[in-house]
Design a protein around this nucleic acid. Sequence first.
DNA 1: GCTGAATGTAACCTTGTGGATACGTACCCA
DNA 2: TGGGTACGTATCCACAAGGTTACATTCAGC
Lengths: 105, 105
Amino acid sequence: MDAVLHALADESRRTVLDILRDRPASAGELAEALPIARPGVSRHLRVLREAGLVDVRQDAQRRIYTLRPEALVEVDEWLGEYRRLWENRLGALQTEIARGKKARR
Amino acid sequence: MDAVLHALADESRRTVLDILRDRPASAGELAEALPIARPGVSRHLRVLREAGLVDVRQDAQRRIYTLRPEALVEVDEWLGEYRRLWENRLGALQTEIARGKKARR
DNA sequence: GCTGAATGTAACCTTGTGGATACGTACCCA
DNA sequence: TGGGTACGTATCCACAAGGTTACATTCAGC
């Protein structure tokens, strides 16, 4: 849990996850998508790996990274403890506001 | 979003949020509940404030902190992009496991 | 086996972070 | 108005984090 939230705190790492959400990608592809050099990306990938957020599979010289969304379940469960709070907040009025914010009619 | 996730990356700050989930609390009360000295707690509270996760209200010399759960909505929405992935993962089997884990009916 | 490609690791540097102690400030009360 | 209380802020320090360049490693193909 701590490792996962720590991993999510960095924007580069979130970008990696967002890419992997669509498709698996090699380390090189991910590095091209980020504004930093490859070694930095490599280390970000290590953090993601150790947090259980991604899996790696070797394909010749390339390392293909895939998302492991299950790792986010624990974050979702932690958030769940708060979800009812913001859902109940101020009752119907707040609900109305939230609805307008997320989906303008 | 970045500020919120950054705030959540620290365990002390998450502990503060968990306390405020039950009830508002003064800075002193929060400091007592944490293993660190008061000035450190003060700075944690500042981070939480700047991330919009808590509100402060002054009561004489005391500062009463309350939770602002709405700040977590954006995290929930970000997570939502991934939720369907882990829910669909491996189909019904995975669904069954997730259901058992949450100890629903 | 050698070469180039893809990637991880090591070493290094700068900045950010979280802890502590010391100090400043605002408030209530006598 | 002087003192105690409850905070926040400033400063300092140790260490973690994230970036870079240089090097090591592994693999495919000739």
